[in-house]
Each structure stands twice: as structure tokens, then as C-alpha cells.
């Protein structure tokens, strides 16, 4: 091979090595910063999980709005809408299974502020009603301004406050 070609190959190899290192770092970065709101409630039940994007870092891509989801009794809410907090406007489809809320990255609704606990609260569907259950959080869960003690029914369009985030259930 000519001198120039060898030089290019040599430099190309070093560049490839650094691309490798940075792709690893970008995965770690997505681990640390990328999970602001990852709506796993919809992602987990979607059939194409296997081909899901590698880095769902962009919050907008992960959230899907499915009105009229299957498995929800009539009259019950179909989506959870965040009306206050850093993810204002995001929605999570309610499909009958539990919604975990907290700072833990594997929560269905990740609440990223210092007033929320790792496992803060969960929403459970029972007898055609959504109940909010506080999971012994430090700063409490507030339903229409009142602190939730025992699990309480969340009516449609009633604000639920967790840390700085407020959300409502809507039909």
C-alpha cells in the first residue's frame, strides 16, 4: 500500500476507536440523563418492543397518545395528562395495568425532582375506578389538595400532585 493510504488507514483506525468510546459514553449518558419521562406504560405493551429505538432519550418520541385504549372500562379514564411540572403536556395512556410513579428510572411515570421519592405512588385500576396509593413517600401525594393516606379514588379531571408535578386523569 502507498504511504498515503497507510497514513489514512492509520488515522481512520484511531478515529474508529474514538467513535467506539464515544458511543459507549453516549449509552451511559442516556442512562444517566436520558430518562426524564419515558412512558413505559405504552412502550412495554407495544408489540414492536424488540425493534424499539436504541436510545429513547428524546422524551417526545417515547410518548404515544392512544385514546380509547383497550381494557379500560367505560367511563374510566384513558389517559394521564401532566398539567404542571417539568413534563407539562406529556400524556400516558392508561391500559388497565398499574402505573408506578417515582424517581426510579423504571417507573412508568418518572418524576425527576427532589421532592419525589424513588417509589412514590402508584395508580391501580379497581372496580372501574383508578385508585392512587401513596407508597410511603417522604413528601406525600396530594389529591385535590389533600394528602393521600389510604388509597383514594381519583376522579376524572382531579389534580394529583407529586413533588412539583401535577397530573390529572382524563377520558
Amino acid at each position: 500500500m502507498s504511504e498515503l493510504a497507510l497514513f489514512l488507514v492509520r488515522m481512520g483506525f484511531v478515529v474508529v476507536l474514538w467513535i467506539f468510546v464515544f458511543s459507549i459514553i453516549s449509552v451511559i449518558r442516556a442512562d444517566i440523563f436520558g430518562q426524564k419521562v419515558v412512558s413505559k406504560a405504552s412502550v412495554r405493551n407495544a408489540p414492536q418492543v424488540l425493534s424499539s429505538p436504541i436510545i429513547p432519550a428524546a422524551p417526545t418520541a417515547a410518548v404515544s397518545v392512544t385514546s380509547g385504549a383497550i381494557g379500560v372500562a367505560s367511563g374510566a379514564a384513558s389517559r394521564l395528562v401532566i398539567i404542571e411540572g417539568e413534563n407539562t403536556g406529556k400524556e400516558i395512556a392508561l391500559e388497565g395495568r398499574e402505573i408506578h410513579i417515582g424517581r426510579a428510572p423504571n417507573s412508568d411515570l418518572v418524576v425527576n425532582d427532589e421532592y419525589a421519592s424513588t417509589q412514590h405512588a402508584k395508580l391501580v385500576l379497581m372496580n372501574e375506578d383508578w385508585l392512587i396509593q401513596d407508597l410511603n413517600s417522604t413528601n406525600g401525594t396530594f389529591l385535590a389538595g389533600a394528602r393521600v393516606g389510604t388509597p383514594a379514588v381519583v376522579k376524572l379531571n382531579t389534580p394529583v400532585k407529586i413533588g412539583k408535578t401535577v397530573f390529572e386523569l382524563r377520558a
Binding site: 412495554r44 418492543v49 424488540l50 379497581m126 385508585l131 396509593q133 388509597p151
Partner: peptide, 19 residues
């Protein structure tokens, strides 16, 4: 209010997240 069912009907978390 009906707490036994809250823990009794925990759905199994499926391990389908091969991200």
C-alpha cells in the same frame, strides 16, 4: 379501603425489555 386486593393483583412484570 380494600387493601388486600391492592397487593393481591400485582401484575407480573414481564421481562420483555431487551433494550
Amino acid at each position: 379501603m380494600v387493601s388486600p386486593i391492592l397487593t393481591g393483583t400485582m401484575p407480573k412484570v414481564m421481562r420483555v425489555v431487551p433494550r
